[in-house]
């Protein structure tokens, strides 16, 4: 029950953080891909001759503004909404944005006059648990899921490569690689506004986040020149990034993990670790003492993971 309460609290707190977002902006990223920022989590928009593809849908109260922003770049119906995570600031607009869309998948849902909503199977499984049943209003639940490490779709003359990091921000994340446009939509495992939310109650882990960031940095992203441009990465929150930005975010998280792991191995308690301020040099950019995801919560999540990974008998 405690885990359920924590999950509900975190979900509610994350949503409330973005309730007062500033005005919505739509920026061209590259190729067919745009980003809508300011409506909760970032919304990736792919346009073309067939349909509009969205990665995430933002908070529900901004759906009208999001539709208006989309209509400035495309008159096509929305075909897919792909969810990177279960959080409400990424899924809250599913229901309203899917309405009137065009169901792009061949499946039992084909007769729906709405966009297909796609996620990893774990996402749907979580919606069927008491803790997360209310996380997404039911008309906005996924219509199609995949249960493997990856899934390939095609839209607007472009491959969409969906990948499932096993345990990153949560255990039901998806990142989307728009292969022709050369853009990755990463979701909340990459957050330029704060330390990543490690939602351990939903199966998240820092190790999984690092694995995914290394994959983006080393396998997917190619800089154009001098570690700049080339593949662009859209984080769950914050500005448009390239490989360098992912690499230094990865560097930071790796260094913090190593520091906290070292402290855990030396037998320090959580309070001692917090007092040692292992994130101090990065707090000016990513830390927060208030809001839904504080520095203290981040340290605690990393510490708990470190302690659980320390072999019995090795703590001093």
């Amino acid at each position: 029950m405690k885990a359920i309460r924590v999950a509900v609290f975190v979900a509610a707190a994350i949503s409330s953080t973005f309730a007062q977002e500033p005005q919505i902006e739509c920026l061209h990223v590259k190729g067919n891909v745009y980003v809508i920022a300011g409506a909760g989590g970032n919304i990736t928009v792919q346009v073309g001759d067939e349909a509009v593809v969205l990665v995430d849908s933002g908070l529900p109260q901004y759906s009208r503004e999001v539709i208006n922003a989309i209509r400035k770049i495309s008159s096509k119906p929305i075909g897919y909404i792909i969810n990177t995570t279960i959080d409400r600031d990424h899924t809250g607009g599913n229901e309203s944005l899917a309405k009137g869309g065009f169901f792009m998948l061949t499946s039992a849902n084909q007769q729906r006059s709405a966009a297909a909503i796609v996620s990893h199977l774990n996402f749907l499984n979580r919606l069927n648990t008491p803790a997360d049943r209310q996380a997404v209003s039911q008309p906005g639940w996924p219509t199609d899921t995949y249960d493997t490490a990856e899934w390939k779709l095609y839209a607007n003359d472009e491959p969409l490569l969906l990948e499932h990091p096993a345990s990153a921000h949560t255990d039901s994340d998806t990142l989307v690689f728009f292969r022709r446009s050369d853009v990755v939509s990463a979701g909340d495992l990459f957050d330029m506004t704060r330390y990543p939310v490690i939602d351990r109650t939903r199966g998240g882990s820092l190790e999984g986040i690092l694995k995914a960031l290394n994959h983006i940095s080393l396998d997917l992203a190619v800089p154009k020149q001098n570690e700049e441009g080339g593949t662009y990465i859209i984080p769950g929150h914050g500005r448009i990034c390239d490989r360098y930005d992912v690499a230094i975010y990865r560097d930071m998280l790796t260094i913090i993990r190593d520091r906290i792991r070292d402290m855990a191995v030396r037998g320090m308690s959580l309070e001692q670790v917090k007092a040692a301020r292992p994130t101090f040099d990065y707090d000016g950019e990513f830390g927060s003492d208030t809001g839904a995801w504080t520095t203290a919560m981040f340290i605690e999540a990393v510490y708990q993971e470190a302690v659980s990974n320390v072999r019995p008998g090795t703590r001093k």
């Binding site: 001098n226 570690e227 690499a247 560097d251 101090f280 040099d281 990065y282 000016g284």
Partner: peptide
């Protein structure tokens, strides 16, 4: 400030051996 000092104290020149950092101007 102290934040800059702490980050620089952690820095290691081996950083430049990583593929992701070799071509930074």
């Amino acid at each position: 400030n102290d934040r800059a000092r702490m980050q620089a104290d952690s820095w290691d020149a081996d950083k430049w051996t990583l593929l992701e950092h070799q071509c930074e101007p």
